[in-house]
Nucleic acid binder design. Sequence first.
DNA 1: TGTACATCAGTGAACGCGCGTTCACTGATGTAC
DNA 2: TGTACATCAGTGAACGCGCGTTCACTGATGTAC
Lengths: 224, 224
Amino acid sequence: MSWSKRGGGEGEEAGGARGYHHGNLKEALLRAALELIAQKGPAGFTFAEAARWAGVSPAAPYRHFRDRDELLANVALRGFERFEVVLKRAWDDGRPDALAALDRLGKAYLEFARTEPAYYSAMFEAGIPLATSPELREAGDHAFAVLRGAAEKLCAEMPPTKRPPTLMVALHIWSISHGIASLFGRGDAARRTLPMSAEELLEAGVLVYLRGLGFATATEKPAG
Amino acid sequence: MSWSKRGGGEGEEAGGARGYHHGNLKEALLRAALELIAQKGPAGFTFAEAARWAGVSPAAPYRHFRDRDELLANVALRGFERFEVVLKRAWDDGRPDALAALDRLGKAYLEFARTEPAYYSAMFEAGIPLATSPELREAGDHAFAVLRGAAEKLCAEMPPTKRPPTLMVALHIWSISHGIASLFGRGDAARRTLPMSAEELLEAGVLVYLRGLGFATATEKPAG
DNA sequence: TGTACATCAGTGAACGCGCGTTCACTGATGTAC
DNA sequence: TGTACATCAGTGAACGCGCGTTCACTGATGTAC
């Protein structure tokens, strides 16, 4: 109907500038991969099917990715970037106070794992070595840096004499968040059930941990 | 050379009684699967290759497993059983005291994840729903029961008025152990590096956590 | 003790399928003059 | 403004491959009599 093929829109909500023939195939492939991973896990996703999903011949993806692994690594990379944004927004530089912000941070962590299981498994479970590319490692480091910043602010509020190592605190918080997310907080069938929400479990765990550090938390509030 | 094919031994260290033609093919397939998962992850393991690895025609496995998933679920099942044994042995009913035993328990957890990455990923990362079979769920529950027993003993040693919910404590310990194991404690290339050992990180985290619960731990000892 | 039969673990050939990958190509876009 | 050319994203046909699965079969083991 339209005279020009460049007539924008046409049902496709492109994530940026339109390209040549297809119009941003790279973007479309990344989204296809994400969709397929979400449906069948990182294992059940093939280069060919991503191409089909993007409405393109099976040879086309080779213009953009060397192979399946490179595509997967790109998904993970993008996942880390989004993860960082989400965590940063939740942490919000520790406003209004470190404790409240940390609570939001934990909730954001779990929410990301739940609402973006495809990203999450590409990032942490697909077995992609961080050493795959410098960008990937950097993106992972940047996401972790948010947790590290939070740990820093928490530690700074403690009396200097009993200040624990920042890095260790960050690693502990990361570990328990990741543990809860991957055991109980996923969207798929492999999720284990829980007598409470993953959020409550994480919040309680972090509060106990902080008290153990000597961090002056408010008096214990009843669960719920 | 040997007259009888039943002449035992012959290089194969069978895990039990010899069978008919092959001699315990089911066992051999499970071991083949384990080996293949260890080499290439749960994704890169095929029914056909397991058969080849066991030195048997590609149709033979169907006598023992309905399909690939059933074999994988059996690997996970066996993994949980071994995990339970390992954890139980480490916990040793909390001897000589709960704290020392808990420390051993954590180390055993990490050691299992590191030395048996194939089992560990079949159990936790292969996406096998626990609902796959009642046996699988039961085996998983039994392994968790060891952690739960440990939490119980810890809680019992605390003054009744400030005794935390046992289940919650067990879940926290499980979560941080699993988080550390899957982020830093695996044998494969996806492992993230750490400025300390995974064992030290876990031990420190659990100590802080217990102190936060009000558990009377010894005075803080310097790291290392 | 021996014979006939039942059982069933494993064979091997065969099949359709989808994947990864290659290749010469086409045709739309961008650019030099 | 227009023409000729370079670029390169995507085509579509083709390939070899290994997988999952089936099938009628074989042959060793176990058992009834």
